[in-house]
Amino acid sequence: DVEPGKFYKGVVTRIEKYGAFINLNEQVRGLLRPRDMISLRAENLNVGDEIIVQAIDVRPEKREIDFKYIP
């Protein structure tokens, strides 16, 4: 289970104008929005990159997770 405030290692699987999709594993995926990329620009991300993200909002009923990148 993903808990708000905890840090996780994930892999960038898709990049859109509104953010990057980060997979923690095959069943868990969330969104890293540009406003939550402190000191990281979306254009510096590539599909396949491994990054550490913090879960900031977890909505299990919608199967949605928002992440924040903190260097």
Rank of each mutant, 00 (worst) to 15 (best):
D1I: 14
D1L: 14
V2L: 08
V2D: 02
V2W: 06
V2I: 15
V2E: 02
V2T: 03
E3F: 12
E3P: 05
P4K: 15
P4D: 05
P4S: 09
G5W: 04
G5Y: 05
K6N: 08
K6I: 07
K6G: 09
K6S: 06
F7I: 08
F7K: 05
F7W: 10
F7E: 03
Y8N: 00
Y8D: 00
Y8G: 01
Y8C: 03
Y8W: 02
Y8I: 02
K9N: 06
K9Q: 08
K9S: 07
K9Y: 10
G10A: 11
V11N: 02
V11F: 08
V11K: 09
V11T: 11
V12A: 00
T13I: 09
T13N: 02
T13E: 05
R14F: 05
I15V: 10
I15Y: 01
I15D: 01
E16F: 12
E16L: 10
E16H: 09
E16Y: 10
K17Y: 12
K17Q: 10
Y18L: 07
Y18G: 07
Y18E: 10
G19T: 08
G19F: 10
G19V: 09
G19D: 03
G19Y: 10
A20T: 07
A20F: 11
F21P: 00
F21N: 01
I22E: 01
I22V: 11
N23G: 06
N23K: 14
N23P: 00
N23W: 12
L24C: 08
L24F: 05
L24I: 14
L24Q: 00
L24P: 01
N25R: 06
N25K: 05
N25Q: 06
N25G: 11
E26P: 14
Q27I: 12
Q27W: 15
Q27H: 15
Q27K: 14
V28D: 05
V28Q: 06
R29E: 09
R29K: 10
R29A: 10
G30H: 02
L31S: 03
L31D: 03
L31A: 03
L31N: 04
L32E: 03
L32M: 06
L32F: 04
L32P: 03
L32R: 02
R33W: 07
R33D: 05
R33V: 09
R33L: 09
R33I: 11
P34E: 12
R35G: 12
R35D: 11
R35N: 09
R35L: 09
R35H: 11
D36V: 06
D36H: 12
D36T: 02
M37L: 08
M37T: 06
M37C: 09
I38G: 15
I38M: 09
I38Y: 07
I38W: 03
I38L: 09
S39P: 15
S39E: 13
S39M: 13
L40K: 06
L40H: 06
L40Q: 05
R41E: 10
R41H: 11
R41I: 11
R41N: 11
R41C: 13
R41W: 12
R41K: 15
R41A: 12
A42C: 13
A42Q: 13
A42V: 15
E43W: 11
E43D: 14
N44Q: 15
N44W: 14
N44P: 08
N44V: 10
L45M: 07
L45K: 05
L45C: 06
V47I: 13
G48S: 01
G48Q: 01
G48R: 01
D49V: 05
D49A: 06
D49W: 06
E50D: 07
E50Y: 15
E50N: 09
E50R: 12
I51L: 09
I51C: 01
I51M: 03
I52Q: 04
I52D: 01
I52F: 08
V53M: 07
V53C: 03
V53G: 00
V53I: 07
Q54M: 15
Q54P: 01
Q54A: 04
Q54N: 02
Q54F: 12
A55R: 02
A55K: 01
A55H: 02
I56H: 05
I56K: 08
I56F: 07
D57Q: 14
D57W: 07
D57S: 15
D57K: 15
V58Q: 04
V58T: 06
V58N: 04
V58L: 05
V58H: 05
V58K: 03
R59W: 06
R59T: 04
P60V: 11
P60T: 09
P60Y: 09
E61T: 08
E61D: 14
E61A: 11
K62E: 08
K62Q: 10
K62G: 07
E64I: 11
E64V: 08
E64A: 05
E64T: 08
I65D: 05
D66H: 10
D66M: 12
F67N: 03
F67D: 03
F67G: 03
F67V: 05
F67Q: 05
F67E: 03
K68N: 04
K68Y: 07
Y69A: 06
Y69K: 03
Y69Q: 08
Y69G: 03
I70T: 10
I70E: 08
I70M: 10
P71Q: 10
P71M: 12
